[in-house]
Structures are given as structure tokens and as C-alpha cells.
Amino acid sequence: MYLIPEHKQVPFAGCTTAPVSEQRMMITGNWRTYRPVINREECNLCLSCVAYCPDACWQLNEAGDEVVWNAEYCKGCLICVNECTHGALSKAHELDFEDGVVRLDKPF
């Protein structure tokens, strides 16, 4: 018999309940070394970041007046920075942040 510690337990064959929006079993934000930072004054809500993010980490908020960044799943690919039409997005190193993933003992 083998004992599988709790943190290693995986569902049968790795099958998970289909996520409605976020897959809690696979948080990818801790892959990041750089993150996009938004300058709200420059943002004209063109939504290029929303359209181009491969992981849907930029979303328009409910009020419709701001784009919101998802830190838990953004892998830091910076496509959004490249595609931003108004120069509102820039890249910053994770080390520059108190909550930067490289400083975390446990990734989220």
C-alpha cells in the first residue's frame, strides 16, 4: 500500500470538473517574471488587451469603465503590452512588487 499526501492528491486520470471560468487546480500566475502595469490615464478602453490576452487575464469590469488584470493566471507573456494601442501598458519586473511571485513562499 502507498500513502499519497494530501497536497499530491490528483483526481482519477487527472480529470477535473470542467471550470466555469478559472481552473483552480492550475494557477499559472506564478510562472511570471514580468507583469503588465496599466496607466489608467492613458487607457482609452480600446480593449486590445482583452482581445489579445491568450489566457483571458484582461477583462472589462462590470461598470464598463476599466479593464481588470487577473494576477493569479497571467503568465507574463506581455502580448498585451505589445498590442496596447495607447501606450497605457508597460512591463515591470516581479521583483519590483511586494507581492511579486518571486517573493512568495507559497505560490498563491
Binding site: Q9, V10, A13, G14, C15, A18, M26
Partner: peptide, 27 residues
């Protein structure tokens, strides 16, 4: 039971963490 079924949606083959890999190999 673990077949793909629109009435009971599940994900097959999602990415897992490296520290879960050995448990799946053991299974």
C-alpha cells in the same frame, strides 16, 4: 465514468503541477 459527457462536463488532460506528477504515475 470518466467519459466526456455534455451533461456532466469534465476536463481531460489538464496541466498539473510537477509535484502532482509522481502521484499520477503511481496511480
Amino acid at each position: 465514468d470518466h467519459r466526456l459527457d455534455p451533461k456532466k462536463p469534465i476536463s481531460h488532460g489538464p496541466q498539473i503541477r510537477p509535484d502532482q506528477g509522481d502521484a499520477l504515475e503511481l496511480a
